[in-house]
Amino acid sequence: MIQNIAQKFTGSRSTLRAAEHRFIIIALVPTILFYAIVKFYPIFFSFFISMHEWSLFGNVSPFVGLDNYVLLAKDSLFYKVMWNTMYRTFAGTFLGAFCSLIVALILNPIKRGSILLRLLYFLPVMTSVIASATIWKWMLQTRFGLLNQLLSFVGIQPVPWLQSTTWAMPSIIVMGIWGGIGFTVIIYLAGLKGIPKDYYEAAEIDGASSLQLAFRITLPLLKPVVSFVLITGVIGGFSGGFQAIYMMTGGGPLDSTRVLALHIYDYAFQRMFMGQASSMSFVLFAIVLILTLVQFKLQRVDWEL
């Protein structure tokens, strides 16, 4: 890649016509300005805020240096939030990737009705999380919710799904998997399409069983897609979950579903501790940055493709 860039700098092909030059400049100048103002400046501004005791009310925002970060390091609630975030991220990503893989593998050989099936699995992806969470909250309602009513037929006592510190997070994770499975399945199906049919035919002629086909051909060749799904899932998971949790539990009970995104919103816009919230958002930024670098190292994603 570096060689590429170097070539482009020294290359002889930079003899653009004036019209092309104008075209590029008219398009790029507003773009660069936009990104500078809306994306890059806020990062520095955010770091600046995180060094102050910043509140929307009151005009003084005293400089406190790294105190906000020190406070975080000592805050047991923040550790709980980080634990919740990781719990949701890893359980959700791995279970979701697993379920999607199963669905994709059994959906792949199907021809008749596959479009309808894909559509059904894709429905929750199109639905806003706010609306989905509203439905799920109703279905998981302790006394009148559908799930507990159905469970009562097999003699299971009502479970307070969203009011229990044990069950609230798993409920939210299951809803997240329901909401995302359709998208992941399509990614897997595209990956499965890329595996040449000849491999299977050759293996079948050699007498391979369908289990052998799955474990010796499909899964090894699908490994890059699986790891793509897992890594992007984990990266997205750290900053995700806000809408579902905001609607279903509000972070409760007893902060058992309070994740980082909700915590940042709560501190910044309800408690108005913007400095403290900014320092948390920087911790999030650092985590995401490190994970992304790890991804580049692991996958060597070739953006030139």
């Binding site: 990104y35 994306k39 900014s278 995401v288």
Partner: peptide, 15 residues
């Protein structure tokens, strides 16, 4: 900028 979570620039953008 794709990798920056929205939460990171939410507060400054709001201000």
């Amino acid at each position: 900028t794709w990798i920056i979570p929205f939460e990171v620039y939410l507060i400054p953008l709001y201000l």
